[in-house]
Write a protein that binds this DNA or RNA. Structure first.
Lengths: 368, 368
DNA sequence: GTGAAAGCGCTAACAT
DNA sequence: ATGTTAGCGCTTTCAC
C-alpha cells in the first residue's frame, strides 16, 4: 500500500520548486522548462507520489468521471454499449461510474444523486422511461445527460440513437428480395413484384407476399420503429403495408417466439419469411416453425434483430440486423465531452442517429 | 442544472445551526436532536443542496468508490460478475468504477493508477496475469485488492474463486452416471462400473467408458482445474483417469468445437459422452458430432461449462455447469468491505471458494 | 447536543 | 518560467 500522505508540498521540496510548478508539470507540462520538469518528475517517482484527484475535484468543482446509467449490465445490448463507453472514456482520461438501475426508477434516481455528489462531469443514460418530466427530474440533480438509444424530445438535450426504422426496413426488404415462394406456395420470381395492381383486386387475389412480423408491444418505441420500417419496405416494393401480417408477443423471449412460430407454421397460406424484432424471438420462432414442420431456411426465411452472440452460434445462424452498439457508446462519450468543452451558452444540443446494417447468415440467405 | 455552489455553510445558516451539525445530520443522524435534524433536512431540501463527496474524500483520504477491473465487459462471464458487484456496492452506498483492460497490461496498470488518484477504497480484479510480481505491482498503486476467479497465492491477499475442479467432476460424474452405451457401442448398465478389474487387463479389454474431454490449453488454470475434476470423477467411479480421452483445442470457440466434434465423431469406438470446458465449445461440438452423423443426446451426451445464455437457448439446450457469477461479484464486494472495516493489523486475508452446480438439460439428460 | 476552528491537497489568479 | 497565496467544502477534534 503506497503512502498517500504526501502531497505537492513534499514533491516541491524535494525538487526544489514550488507547489504551482508541480501542478503545472502534471497538468500543463509544456509551460514548464524541460530541466525543471525532469526534476519534478524524478521527485514524484522517488516519493511514489500519487496525485489526489479529490482535491482537484474539490477545487475545480468537477470530476473527470462519467456516469453510465443502464438498466442491466448482463444484457448484451447494454454491455456492448458499456464496452464502447469504457474505451472512449479511457482514451480521454475519464473514469466510468457503472450505475445499474435494474428497472427501478428510485435506484436510478439515487444513482444520479451519487453522480452529482461526486461532481461527475455528466451521465450517459439509457433511460427506463424517457418522458419529459422524468428527464427533467434527472437533470435537476445536476449532471449533464446524453440519452442513449432514445431521441431526446425536441432540443431538450443530447442523444444518440440507432435508426430502428431503417433497421426494420432492411430486414423486410431482404425478405422481400430473397423470397422464393409466393404466399400461397407457388414459386415467384424474387425481387420487387406486383406493381400497379389495384389494392382491392390484389387483396382479394392474394394474401400478400407472405411476410410475418413477430413483434413485442408497439408501445415500446423500438418495436414501433421496427414495425414502421417493415411497413416502409412494403411500400418501397410497391406493396400494401397492410398485407404485412403481424403477430404480437407479450415477452420478447425464446419461449414466446417458439409459441409464435408454431402458430405461424399452422397458418395458410404458408409464409415465406418472418421478421422478428429481436434475436431471442427469432431463435424461438425457428424452433416453433420446425415444430410445425417447416424448415428454415428451406421453406421459410427468418430474420432477427440485434446481432447478439447467440444469433451467430445457434444451430441455424441467424440473419439479423446488427446495431452498432460499441459505436453508440463511443459516440455518447464524445457528445458529452463536446458538450463540456462548449461554451455554456453557445452549446447546441446534438442528436446523432447511427445506422444499423443487415448481417446475412443461413436463416435467410441470399438467393442461391 | 442544479447549483452546486452552496455548501454546508449556506445550509447551516438557513437552519440556524453550525457546520458541524449539518455534517452530523448527514452522517450520524442519530446523535442529532430530532428537531434540529428536521430543520437541517428542511434547509437542505429548500436549497437543493447536494453534498460534495470530493471534499469528504479529501478530508478522509478515502473515497466510497470500488474499482472493478476486468478484461472485457461484453464477455457474459464478466458482465454477470459486474451485475453482482454493482448490486452489492449500491446496497452499501459505494460507487463502482468500471475499468476494462482489454487484455492490455499497461491499460490495466493505468486503471489502477486512476483508482489510486481517486483514493478508491479498493479494487476487485479479475487479473490478466496473476503472478506474484504483477500483483505486487498492482498493489503498489495503493488500492486494496480482491482477486476474482483466481486464488491469491498463499496469504498475499483476499480472493473469491469458483471451484472448477468440482465443476469438472460434476460434469463427468453426470456423464458416467447417465451413459447408456459402452465405449464400444454395447449397452451397459449406468452407474458405477468396472470395479476391481486389474488395470492392465481392463485397458486391454476396453478403451474405457467412452468419455471425451474437449479442453483448451491446460496452462490456463481454469482448464487445468476442470480437467483435474474430470479425472477425479473417473477415480471416484473406480475408473482409470487415463482412460479419459482428451482433445485439446487452440481456441475455445464454437468453430474450434465443431472441428473437434467432427474428429470425435470419426473415432472408434464411438464415445458415449463429451465434456467441453466451456459452452461455446460444447455448442460447436454438438454441431460437429451432427456433421459426423451422431445425434445428441440420442447417441452421445454433451456437457458444457459456464451456463451462458446461449447454452439454454440453442437448438439442443445444453447441460452445463453453472457458475455462481453474480455471487462471485457480491462476495468480492463483501470481502473488500470487510477488509476495510477490519483493523489494519488484525486483518487476516480471506479466500472464499464458491461451488458450481450442474444444470441438466437436453444435451445430456437424466436417464429416461 | 451543538459550536468553533484547523486543515485535507490541489488549482488558478496574480505577482515576480 | 516560477513563486505566493487564497480558498474549494467537508470532517473532526475539542470546548461548551
Amino acid at each position: 500500500m503506497a503512502k498517500h500522505d504526501i502531497g505537492f508540498a513534499a514533491v516541491a521540496r524535494l525538487a526544489g520548486v514550488s507547489n504551482a510548478t508541480v501542478s503545472n508539470t502534471l497538468n500543463r507540462p509544456e509551460i514548464v522548462a524541460p530541466a525543471t520538469r525532469e526534476r519534478v518528475l524524478a521527485a514524484i517517482e522517488e516519493l511514489d507520489f500519487v496525485p489526489n484527484r479529490a482535491a482537484a475535484t474539490l477545487r475545480q468543482g468537477t470530476n473527470r468521471l462519467i456516469g453510465l446509467v443502464i438498466p442491466d449490465i448482463a444484457n448484451p445490448f447494454y454491455s456492448a454499449i458499456a464496452r464502447g463507453v469504457t474505451e472512449a472514456a479511457a482514451e480521454h482520461g475519464y473514469t466510468v461510474a457503472l450505475c445499474v438501475s435494474h428497472d427501478d426508477p428510485d435506484l436510478e434516481l439515487r444513482h444520479f444523486e451519487m453522480l452529482a455528489e461526486h461532481r461527475a462531469a455528466g451521465a450517459l443514460v439509457a433511460p427506463l422511461t424517457a418522458d419529459a418530466s422524468r428527464l427533467a427530474q434527472l437533470r435537476r440533480v445536476g449532471s449533464r445527460l446524453v440519452l442513449m438509444d432514445r431521441t431526446a424530445p425536441e432540443g431538450t438535450g443530447c442523444s444518440v440513437a440507432i435508426d430502428d426504422v431503417h433497421g426494420g426496413e432492411l430486414a423486410v426488404a431482404h425478405l422481400l428480395a430473397t423470397r422464393r415462394h409466393g404466399g400461397d406456395g407457388t414459386p415467384q420470381p424474387s425481387g420487387h413484384v406486383v406493381h400497379d395492381v389495384p389494392r382491392t383486386a390484389k387483396r382479394a387475389a392474394t394474401p400478400g407476399p407472405g411476410i410475418v412480423l413477430v413483434n413485442g408491444d408497439v408501445a415500446i418505441p423500438q418495436c414501433a420503429d421496427r414495425r414502421e420500417g417493415a411497413r416502409n419496405a412494403f411500400i418501397a416494393a410497391g406493396l400494401d403495408p397492410d398485407d404485412l401480417r403481424e403477430v404480437t408477443v407479450d415477452e420478447m423471449t425464446v419461449d414466446a417466439g417458439r409459441i409464435a412460430g408454431r402458430r405461424i407454421a399452422a397458418r395458410t397460406p404458408r409464409p415465406t419469411g418472418v421478421f422478428c424484432t429481436n434475436d431471442q424471438l427469432a431463435l424461438g420462432v425457428i424452433r416453433g416453425l420446425n415444430d410445425g414442420g417447416l424448415a428454415v431456411p428451406d421453406e421459410v426465411s427468418v430474420v432477427g434483430y440485434g446481432d447478439l452472440a447467440l444469433a451467430a452460434d445457434g444451430r441455424v445462424p441467424l440473419t439479423t440486423v446488427e446495431q452498432p452498439k460499441d459505436e453508440l457508446g463511443r459516440v455518447a462519450v464524445e457528445i458529452l465531452l463536446a458538450e463540456l468543452g462548449a461554451d455554456r451558452a453557445a452549446h447546441e444540443h446534438v442528436t446523432r442517429t447511427l445506422e444499423p446494417h443487415l448481417v446475412v447468415r443461413e436463416s435467410a440467405p441470399l438467393p442461391a
